[in-house]
């Protein structure tokens, strides 16, 4: 059963016909040749496909395309503006916060969202005072908030460094 939908992907409006069973991830990768979001598990268990879906980080592998007609999708590729890397992406390069690179676009999208979420004052599972209006992204806060993005190469220590550098915290002692 097919349906025609429209997605705005990295600022570009795209109309496509998909099977109702097609996920947003497969719509991007198989229909639109947008392969920045990676498929690592296809079940919401690794975070490799993380994109910003209507501005928030989400997993397109668990989002049906037909249920997201009209959605706005930003991938790690789309975070770059006018050929300039997003500050998070630049920080990943500076900190060597990646190795094989497969989880990396998802990590970058997630990190960009972590900064926004912290800016909104959202607490995390390790925030000592849930009622506090502001959160400081120290190392443990960053690590907890980035834990939905698995990295098998083991770049976590550098990923925390990269996010801390953009957050403007030194991330605490190391």
């Amino acid at each position: 059963m097919d349906a025609t939908i429209t997605l705005t992907v990295d600022g570009r409006e795209r109309t496509l016909t998909v099977d109702t069973r097609t996920t947003v991830l497969d719509a991007l990768r198989e229909h639109l040749d947008v392969t920045s979001p990676k498929k690592g598990c296809d079940h919401g268990q690794c975070g490799s496909c993380t994109v910003l879906l209507d501005g928030r980080r989400a997993l397109p592998c668990l989002a049906l395309a037909v249920a997201h007609d009209g959605a706005d999708v930003t991938t790690a590729d789309g975070l770059a503006t006018d050929g300039e890397l997003h500050p998070v992406a630049r920080a990943f390069l500076d900190a060597d916060a990646y190795q094989c690179g497969y989880c990396t676009p998802g990590q970058v999208c997630s990190a960009a969202a972590v900064l926004a979420e912290a800016g909104e004052g959202w607490p995390s599972a390790v925030t000592p005072d849930l009622d506090a209006e502001r959160v400081t992204l120290d190392r443990s806060e960053i690590a907890e908030r980035m834990s939905g993005n698995l990295c098998r190469c083991g770049a976590y220590a550098n990923i925390v460094d990269a996010v801390a550098s953009v957050a403007g915290t030194d991330g605490g002692a190391r």
């Binding site: 919401g44 975070g47 993380t50 879906l53 928030r56 980080r57 989400a58 997993l59 668990l62 989002a63 997630s110 969202a113 972590v114 979420e117 607490p123 995390s124 599972a125 925030t127 849930l130 908030r145 834990s147 939905g148 993005n149």
Partner: peptide
């Protein structure tokens, strides 16, 4: 309740 929600899944999944 806030703590339980934050202990569940990941930031991405909690947004969905």
């Amino acid at each position: 309740l806030a703590a339980a929600l934050l202990a569940g899944a990941s930031g991405q999944l909690r947004n969905m």
